[in-house]
Design a binder for these strands. Structure first.
Lengths: 223, 223
DNA sequence: CGTTTCATCAATGTATACGTTAATGAGTGC
DNA sequence: GCACTCATTAACGTATACATTGATGAAACG
């Protein structure tokens, strides 16, 4: 809830560091003392520290006294934690949508996202697919119009972002995932909350298991 | 995940302010410029600001440039947000417990909590009842051994803490609530996850509705 | 050579300083 | 009497300074 838009140094530091972590430019395990980071960002330690506190809350870094900032790794158990929470929240949010029938065209963002997933799948463009997938999930939770829920869920997305990116090309073509999204969307359109919840839940559980299996297979024990 | 135990000024400021907010000594809507607060806490603005950033993340205060810190009020819609999330998370955590049958005596903390609720109800000690109720919910989510889940849920508890305290004496004797906790516990003991989920969900939905009704009745529109 | 002691160094936690800028109110014009 | 202008004030965002203290490696010792 801080104003992320104001052009303050704290915000710049936060945005830059977050982007570097999500993109793996600052890989898990990386650590550096505050003065180094501050210099690299061209600012003093004061705003940097404030940004770091926010990143720590986001579960992206750890502030170890005397050892500086450490980018947190994600172990399979961490992944399980995140997906267990998402498996409880997302299906509920989706089911909720199935009740609130708004004006027609209301679900356009979701339809577009699923459409883009299908198109990307057809075109074998995995990056576009991942982006559309991400959009689907983010749009959906935002439609819940529950600000707290949105913040929690997007925070969790961030935490598993690296793992998703790294495993994107290690999995089979996401044919089933794409179909499942379409089914969830249809369920919402049809106003079937219980069906939607069940479908989404199954989707989450399946994708979580899939991702964990890949991590195990490739011995990617920390991301 | 900051180290809350280290005796630093940041931690002191955080603990004191959080306690003051939860106890309503700093009521919703209260606001003060940073220098005032810093002086009152006997420290400089630097550690204070770091504490405030954490409180902001916790959803307890808002940092308004030029106007200082503002203790956030809770409107009915905020309450709805919080309870919607809890209604998704807690039943899931409880259902999970119904699967993992650990050693006997494993559920002791929950049994004690429910026992204390029943005793407090008998003794007409509302404060003790509320404390036991709180303990039940906290213990339960901690047993999920999902650190992230615990942090999210306890953060939400904090946000509605004031409302719960203030309405404690405006509601009828929590006979049904107490019974529902006992039923949930029995469901866990019997290893019936689906039943537990349903019971807990109903409990949450009912208590949320009850609380909101009270707020409406008494025109307590912001807490 | 391994271990212990101690001095050095550097990072942190915090205080202080300061330029910028929004808020406030006095003063002016209408 | 009301609106507007502008000067004053003070809070914020940030930089800098500094004492404390853990870490590190050298040196002394066995």
């Amino acid at each position: 809830m801080p104003d992320l838009s104001r052009p303050t140094r704290v915000n710049r530091a936060y945005d830059l560091l977050r982007a570097d972590i999500l993109s793996n430019r600052l890989p898990p395990g990386f650590s550096a003392p505050e003065p180094d980071l501050a210099e690299r960002l061209g600012m003093s330690r004061t705003p940097l520290r404030e940004a770091l506190i926010r990143l720590e809350h986001d579960g992206l870094v750890e502030l170890v006294p005397r050892r500086g900032v450490r980018v947190l790794p994600m172990y399979p158990d961490d992944m399980r934690e995140v997906y267990a929470i998402l498996a409880a929240l997302e299906p509920e949010a989706a089911a909720e949508l199935a009740l609130h029938n708004g004006d027609p065209g209301w679900l356009k963002p979701l339809e577009d996202a699923v459409g883009d997933m299908e198109a990307a799948l057809e075109a074998d463009d995995l990056d576009a697919w991942a982006q559309a997938d991400d959009r689907f999930h983010r749009e959906l939770v935002e439609m819940s119009s529950n600000r707290r829920l949105t913040e929690i869920v997007t925070g969790l997305y961030d935490q598993v972002h690296r793992a998703r990116t790294l495993t994107l090309r290690l999995r089979e073509k996401p044919v089933q995932s794409t179909r499942e999204h379409r089914e969830v969307l249809n369920g919402i359109l049809d106003g079937k909350p219980r069906r939607v919840r069940k479908l989404f839940r199954a989707h989450r559980d399946r994708t979580a298991a899939e991702l964990l299996a890949i991590l195990e297979t490739y011995h990617l024990l920390h991301l």
